[in-house]
Nucleic acid binder design. Sequence first.
DNA 1: AAGACGAAAGTGGTTGA
DNA 2: TCAACAACTTTCGTCTT
Length: 280
Amino acid sequence: MIEDAAEIVCGACGAVVDRLMDSRPNRAFTPEQSQARARTGPPTSVRFHDGGMGTMITAPRGDLSGEKQRELFNLRKWQQRVRVSDATERNLAIALSELSKLAGALSLPPNILDTASVIYRRAIKKRMIRGRSIANIVGASLYLSCRQCGVPRSLDEIAALAMTTKKELGRSFRFMVRALDIVVPPSRNANYAAQFSNRLAISGKAEGIAIRILKKAQQMKLTSGRGPAGIAAASTYIATVLTNERKTQREIAETANVTEVTIRNRYRELLERLTLVVPL
DNA sequence: AAGACGAAAGTGGTTGA
DNA sequence: TCAACAACTTTCGTCTT
């Protein structure tokens, strides 16, 4: 674990594990406490290029001596230079705000956003942005973050909102994995199954069965090399059949963003290799 | 008539010489 | 740079409910 400002970051994968600083406002019950506990501004965060420190030195007003005024003027000038005039800083500021827009649009929780922010910072530090567009690096950071945290989001979904293509996003993603040598866990397809079950409004029982099927499939090495969505969709389909909550292949195919044929192929493989002991 | 099934050809991307 | 390759899609005809 490495402590990075206000977040605890996993050194191996870059995931933001926890925050050191409390994000709740300090409570104060008496005037004395309010003096002692006062804190100006929100806690710091990797999400902002300056750590969330909004400090600005304002323009000097007229009631100061000439000397003081000049001094303040210089301070202000330097702070602005340090703050955003540096090209890298400006890039970071723009990118991080893009990142949080994206994460919002995909309704991803804050820890995903934080992890992605950390990844993005590492990318910048390694000067990896040459040629590549901000949209791609931002998207790839977010995708990486999702993978690490086991949140099922596809390249397609992110590419659509990040104003880029699946192809380019995928390329940036692979590039970043290599350059930052991040360990990316394989997609947890159980999470996909859970997501599909939610979207299809399927019972918890069926969802459980789907996940059990997936586990079995994984043990039997039926999952390697296959798209996680397809297998999860097939398992979900089997589960709905077993529990008499049958959904059409078309319905499942649509929510899973794969075709019926792919579902059928996975489904067939699963039936062939899995002796389904059906505990109803 | 709608859904399930599967064969065959096509697509876009990776890999390795 | 090119060909082989794997995963997946598209399309379409046939069977099942």
